[in-house]
Design a protein around this nucleic acid. Structure first.
Lengths: 152, 152
DNA sequence: CTAAATTTGTTTCATATGTAACAATCAAAA
DNA sequence: TTTTGATTGTTACATATGAAACAAATTTAG
């Protein structure tokens, strides 16, 4: 028998494709929110969101919680620091570590964007319908359970 | 009442994040297949897959079917042409258009990779379980229906 | 205690990406 | 017909990305 199948692969039904396509569609829309309202890049938004959620963190932990490469975190932190949306402070016991936390203005902007983010997600839920929205979330949770143990 | 909510946004349960996270997890794994077995980049794989599925196409159509920016398509086509995996031919009636099709070797490699792709997806289905896999697909289809009319 | 190994975060460098400008060609309008 | 306006695909340029090298600090081994 043949080693190769003649049936072509349908890209529009192939999970790695449909998944990245859907992610791009949603990310592109959501990006307009933090871009238009705050002039943030995606790494900057994620850093802000992670600090807003967890409070004080190190750069390494921000990367772990938001699935970002350490160079992305490093650059986003620099940028947010220049805007005075976050503050650094060196650890007393281990001077390699810097504790990062939002400033008052950082917090204020975080709350504003978090609110817009919730509204965005609610709108998405409406568009997709309760059922599809739940199914999508359950499916994504399954992916996270099975593949999420990777470094990134 | 307050304009802002004090409840932080949980990034790990926020759809734009979980979706792009899952897409990256899956894409990263699948990428090892076309990288290791054929030394292809993602745009190159998608171009190959689209031509393999549809036969002869123009660059614009490849972009439409695979959600790729025209510069990505242009570069991927150049690269695949250099490998002699695809062939160009100018349209008789409209000399702006180039018809692109896989060479015999391109076809051969397409079939091999398509087979590996199917196996990869089957493995994913096993890992996630029938139910989660279906839910994920239905959820992604809903996203495509609602947001898929965008240019990209 | 000293040396080797590890951790943290930054920077360098090469690559990947998309916007915008472009050349070539064709279509539509005047 | 001329000329104005799209369309197709490539290229130039500026930005984004990550691997690898790195400095500084800490930890572990011997």
């Amino acid at each position: 028998m043949d080693k190769t199948d003649k049936t072509p692969l349908a890209l529009e039904a192939f999970l790695p494709y449909t998944l990245s396509r859907a992610a791009e569609l949603v990310s592109r829309r959501f990006a307009t929110i933090y871009k238009d309202h705050a002039g943030l890049t995606r790494p900057e938004w994620r850093t802000l969101a992670t600090l807003g959620q967890y409070g004080t963190l190190t750069a390494t932990l921000i990367g772990a919680h938001s699935s970002m490469h350490k160079t992305k975190v490093s650059r986003a932190v620099q940028s947010l620091e220049e805007r005075k949306w976050l503050r650094r402070s060196t650890d007393e016991n281990d001077r390699r570590i810097e504790h990062l936390e939002l400033t008052r203005e950082g917090e204020r902007n975080y709350r504003k964007l978090a609110e817009l983010a919730r509204a965005f997600e609610a709108g998405l839920k409406d568009m997709l319908g309760e059922e599809s929205f739940s199914e999508l979330n359950r499916g994504l949770a399954a992916v996270e359970r099975q593949l999420g143990t990777d470094v990134f």
